[in-house]
Design a protein around this nucleic acid. Structure first.
Length: 790
RNA sequence: GCCGGGGUGGCGGAACUGGUCAGACGCGCCCGACUUAAAAUCGGGUGACUUCGGUCAUGCGGGUUCGAGUCCCGCCCCCGGCACCA
């Protein structure tokens, strides 16, 4: 009799063994010593410990990573699979304000809960590499990297309009403003002019458009490319004769220059304040104060004449200069030449203010009314016009981007302090490297008040200038948490390094990350920032690659009530209830069996019974086989089925990234095995089933492997399909007449096409449908079918 | 509007390069066995219609092909990204 299946007992037992035997701890290579050549860096996006526990979306994500880790490990790869915590950030801070307590306590409590859940689920993680962004041993190096980027000119300060969240009382990066609202809290953001720290992400705009040697989903690359928004065009200077001043415009349609009939500047353009009429200034003040969202939603064009004229450099025409809010200050030069005939928005404006319209590109795509350029195709015309103006010093080809530099200062407490000192005499001075980490001080009150909470900590704020020794002040802002997550994957592989953020030899060994798994919502944020960091650090000579993530997979959302699980919506389901009732193996199998991992899925536990039945049947059948004396005889159908399953599971996991179909295949194998537990190859089939299910359900697999007399399944080589067993000796031949199946019967696989046709024609059902006639055409698909066309 | 992804049984989904009557595997449902009974377990059935010969079925309409869920053209619907970006 088989013992009872007690998931809690066997799961605890094997988790202890794995820990004692350091089953999933992986050493780093050392220079001069031999290290495994086949290595694999398996990474899933690090969790944000804002919940007191994981939800099923996390479980899906990390279980997928776990399956890959096991299959790769057992296929001969040395797999590193670390884990850590994105612990800084607003949710912990807001929770602390709401509930009392310190954000550190809340973050660390949540980390403890999540870590315990992860361990309970039995994931193959190298816990000795655990890092947390709020740990001074980590953020010391975040600060160090900031100083490096600053020193190299990739971090700088400037006053610029930034997104201000009035609820969180802090700046929010463009990437995390959705529909004009703060992605975190949903409050409508305002534009504010503030002096902020920026990373010069635009320095890599062109390179970020390319993905050399990188296997990413097409849609992800498209989203990033849309976000970067590269347009080729030209900057053209228009002269304002009476002011003896030039105004630059950016255009992608230099071919329409002869069609310009007016000129427009953005309300925020310095020209308005300097030279515009009082009416125009009043308009600009009013328009500029409106939120960008509202401006964009406006269908009616509004504007005012400034009282000045700009001269079109190509034909000397004087164009009235208007101010209008449909022109944006932060794209191009904040000024445009308006061509109402060839630009929809300019056309609307011209209609509203009765301005002239002049057509200069014909139906045939060639220029007209354009002087010497008449007859040229548009693209060629644009080049020719820019070339002529360039010779006159009035134009140059340029490229414009939608991408903005990343503003990363936050007026909040719970983040990495910025190691910069403001000195009246010396300006902004870096904190000396030997003074790092610059510790986050304790403060009494970190409630947002519109200025950084650290600014109220006088004692911390006051400091001697490292350059002149005079009285100076620390920078009171903290860094965006996306700075932490832009390099955590580098620290994971060298987490205990006290000399540097990471060792180049070590990162060059493990990285780029072989497989990254995470949500597509991070496409224009974290994923773009991480690429920026890696390119910059490569330029600094700190590492030897330019892309952080070689392969990328986005899991679908686990939803409840049709929307993504979120704590604020209250639709969160965690694994604990199912773990408690059925064990970790059941949860792991069930979440992967729910459907294709890249598709959104509606959470329901109504199907868990099927998985539990499967596990119990597996338990019973394998024990039944283990207790029988092996039968004598030739391998048969079970051997072939087992080999087919090996091929299917391996291919699905490693090549197709499909995790639910292997479970179906294993169910099929078990169904066959259950029907023939006394077959001569039952033992082989049982061993194969247990071995193949190990990545999904490692605890029951270990236990059953022991029952079959094996040991340490996690160290056993991944099964290889025996090709010779995949070849069938007979197959079912389908016979069609005019494409309709009329008969099917088993034939020897070795028959020639001629024989197949002959055998097919003998069949009674086929003869009836052939009606005595001769087929006009016969199609033979070897190994499958014969089709007669009459 | 532009770009990307997707529409298959009551449900989740399978069918990987056009080729074994599309629907694997599981859920649900129905029937049966065991049981005093229930649960659990085990066995069987389950796309629709049917005059039981078949016929119709993968969002809709057309096309290519001996053969289309799979390829092509047009349309409808759903999801995601970008959007007054010159």
């Amino acid at each position: 009799m088989a013992p009872r299946y007690e998931p809690h007992e066997i799961e605890a037992k094997w988790q202890r063994v794995w820990e004692d035997e350091r089953a999933f701890n992986v050493p780093n290579p050392r220079p001069g010593e031999e290290a495994p050549e086949r290595h694999w860096y398996q990474l899933e996006m690090l969790p944000y410990p804002s919940y007191n526990g994981m939800h099923m979306g996390h479980v899906l994500n990390y279980t997928m990573g776990d399956v890959i880790t096991h299959v790769r490990r057992r296929s001969g790869w040395t797999v590193v699979r670390p884990m850590g915590w994105d612990a800084f950030g607003l949710p912990a801070e807001n929770a602390a304000i709401r509930e009392g307590g310190h954000p550190r306590e809340i973050a660390e409590r949540n980390i403890d809960t999540i870590r315990a859940q992860m361990q309970r689920l039995g994931w193959a993680i190298d816990w000795e590499r655990e890092v947390s962004s709020h740990d001074p041993r980590f953020y010391r190096w975040t600060q160090w990297l900031f100083l490096k980027l600053w020193q190299e000119g990739l971090a700088y300060r400037k006053s610029a309009p930034v997104n201000w969240c009035p609820n969180d009382q802090t700046v929010v990066a463009n990437e995390y403003v959705v529909d004009g609202r703060c992605e975190r809290c949903g409050a409508e953001v305002e534009l504010r002019n503030m002096t902020q720290w920026f990373f010069r992400t635009t320095a890599y705009a062109d390179e970020l458009l390319e993905y050399p040697g990188v296997d990413w989903p097409e849609r992800t690359k498209t989203i990033q490319r849309n976000w970067i928004g590269r347009s080729e065009g030209a900057e053209i200077l228009f002269r304002v004769d009476e002011l003896d001043e030039d105004l630059a415009v950016f255009t992608t349609r230099a071919d329409t220059l002869f069609g310009a009939t007016f000129f427009v500047v953005a309300p925020e353009h310095p020209f308005v304040e300097a030279h515009a009429s009082e009416d125009a200034k009043a308009y600009a003040r009013h328009a500029g104060a409106r939120p960008a969202e509202e401006r964009a939603a406006e269908t009616e064009k509004t504007g005012a004449f400034t009282g000045h004229y700009a001269t079109n450099p190509v034909n000397g025409e004087r164009l009235p200069i208007w101010v209008a809010d449909y022109v944006l200050m932060d794209y191009g030069t904040g000024a445009i030449m308006a061509v109402p005939a060839h630009d929809e928005r300019d056309g609307e404006f011209a209609a509203a203010f009765h301005l002239p319209v002049r057509l200069v590109v014909g139906e045939d795509g060639r220029l007209g009314s354009s002087g010497e350029f008449d007859g040229l195709p548009a693209a060629e015309g644009a080049r020719a016009i820019v070339a002529r103006l360039q010779a006159e010093g009035r134009a140059r080809p340029t490229v414009s981007y939608r991408l903005r530099d990343w503003s990363f200062s936050r007026q909040r407490y719970w983040g990495c302090p910025i190691p910069a000192i403001h000195c009246e005499r010396c300006g902004v001075v870096p904190v000396p490297e030997e003074d790092l980490p610059l510790l986050l001080p304790e403060v009494e009150d970190y409630a947002p008040k519109g200025k950084a909470p650290l600014a109220s900590n006088e004692e911390w704020l006051r400091v001697d200038c490292p350059q002149c020794g005079g009285e100076a002040q620390r920078d009171p802002d903290t860094m965006d948490t996306f700075v932490d997550s832009s390099w955590y994957f580098l620290r994971y592989v060298d987490p205990h390094n006290d000399e540097a953020p990471f060792d180049r030899f070590v990162v060059d060994y493990w990285l780029p990350v072989d497989q990254y798994i995470g949500g597509i919502d991070h496409t224009t944020g974290h994923l773009l920032y991480s690429r920026f960091f890696v390119k910059a650090l490569n330029d600094f000579g700190m590492l030897g690659f330019r892309e952080p993530f070689a392969r990328l997979f986005h899991q679908g959302w686990v939803q409840m009530g049709g929307t993504k699980m979120s704590k604020t919506k209250g639709n969160v389901a965690g694994p604990e209830a199912i773990v408690e009732q059925y064990g970790a193996d059941a949860v792991r199998l069930y979440i992967l069996f729910m459907g294709p991992a890249d598709q959104d899925m509606e959470w329901t536990d109504s199907g868990i019974e099927g998985i539990v039945r499967f596990l119990r049947r597996l338990w019973r059948v394998v024990h039944e086989v283990a207790e029988r004396a092996p039968a004598e005889g030739e391998p048969g159908a079970l051997t072939r089925k087992a080999n087919e399953t090996i091929a299917k599971v391996t291919d699905d996991v490693l090549r197709r990234f499909q995790f639910h179909t292997p479970i179906s295949a294993l169910m099929e194998l078990l169904n066959e095995l259950g029907g023939a537990p006394d077959a001569p190859d039952a033992r082989f089939a049982a061993e194969t089933a247990v071995s193949l299910i190990q990545p999904y359900a490692p605890h029951i697999a270990e236990e059953l492997w022991s029952a079959l007399g094996g040991e340490r399944l996690w160290r056993q080589p991944w099964p290889q399909a025996d090709e010779s067993q995949l070849v069938r000796e007979t197959f079912e031949l389908v016979v069609q007449v005019n494409g309709k199946v009329r008969d099917r019967f088993h034939v020897d696989a070795g028959l020639s096409e001629h024989d197949l046709v002959a055998r097919a024609r003998e069949r009674e059902k086929v003869r009836v449908h052939l009606n005595g006639g001769e087929p006009r055409k016969t199609i033979v698909v070897p190994g499958r079918l014969v089709n007669f066309v009459v």
